[in-house]
């Protein structure tokens, strides 16, 4: 017993050594996201005549663990735009709540929510840029699809750094490597979106999803797809990749039937 009551009841320093108070920091650097935790993989998008299609699979991975298999990564905003999320799922949920509150506030005026997909993309890109500038990024790469102020189909990307770019077809994550070449072959720049039909665009994305399921280990054969036209949004969240063929696996040496 000593005369320092704050030390009573604590492990004796002369027995256990001085308490390492670095474990109980009240000051010091603030913890920010330095890496994502539960993540979604690629987001794919294609413009066609009169609209845009967006697709993601329904998987959220925890590292290499396929953690959640019914995750909806396509989010509708105000019935006119869709945001497809890749990257951290908790940050996606934060942004989803943010968009919900914006939509509610916009609807307080008598003309309703007037924000289009282009406005939404500008806003989200600025949110990402602000957060990266605070060294507290929202760990996502997103595609925003819908229409601009002139009612032209709109598709654009924004990422955790606030980088933005737009193209008639886009893909994030693994899709940037696997899906974009397929889409560029199917829909070369010279074609222009006026020659691409809704069905053709949907088929192209389904094929890309299949290729991604073959080759992206963090992907799933269950997916969501949203078709955005002036008539509205057709969102399907429980689709299945079809027509896979694993015959090619037989020819791969190194595992399975041919081990040498």
């Amino acid at each position: 017993m000593n005369h320092f009551p704050e030390a009573w009841g604590r492990p004796r320093d002369d027995v256990y050594g001085a308490y390492n108070s670095t474990y109980l920091q009240t000051s010091g650097p603030k913890a920010h996201t330095t890496s994502p935790a539960v993540t979604g993989t690629s987001v794919l998008g294609v413009k066609f005549k009169g609209g845009v299609v967006l697709a993601t699979d329904n998987l959220a991975s925890y590292g290499s663990l396929a953690r959640f298999t019914d995750v909806k990564r396509l989010r509708v905003f105000g019935g006119k735009a869709v945001v497809g999320f890749g990257g951290d799922v908790s940050d996606m949920q934060y942004i989803d709540r943010l968009l919900e509150s914006i939509d509610i506030r916009e609807n307080y005026s008598s003309h309703g929510n007037m924000l289009n997909a282009k406005n939404l993309h500008t806003y989200l890109a600025k949110v990402f840029y602000k957060r990266r500038s605070e060294f507290n990024p929202l760990w996502n790469h997103i595609l925003v699809a819908g229409f601009d102020a002139d009612d032209q189909p709109f598709l654009s990307s924004a990422d955790l750094l606030g980088t933005t770019f737009s193209s008639p077809h886009l893909a994030t994550g693994f899709g940037a490597h696997l899906a974009v070449p397929i889409l560029r072959r199917k829909f070369p720049d010279e074609r222009g979106i006026e020659t691409i039909s809704r069905e053709e665009a949907i088929e192209a994305l389904k094929e890309c999803l299949k290729v991604l399921f073959y080759r992206d280990a963090r992907s799933l054969d269950k997916y969501s797809i949203a078709v955005i036209t002036q008539e509205g949004i057709d969102l399907r969240e429980d689709e299945q990749i079809e027509g896979q063929s694993w015959a090619f696996a037989e020819t791969i040496r190194g595992y399975g039937s041919q081990t040498s």
């Binding site: 108070s21 330095t34 990266r132 750094l161």
Partner: peptide, 24 residues
């Protein structure tokens, strides 16, 4: 070693490194 009797003790904790790189 600093005496560990005070609850609000200044610590010389190593500053944690952020692995986030804000540029590309």
């Amino acid at each position: 070693q600093t005496v560990g009797y005070s609850f609000s003790q200044p610590t010389a904790a190593p500053v944690k490194e952020h692995s986030f790189y804000p540029y590309t």
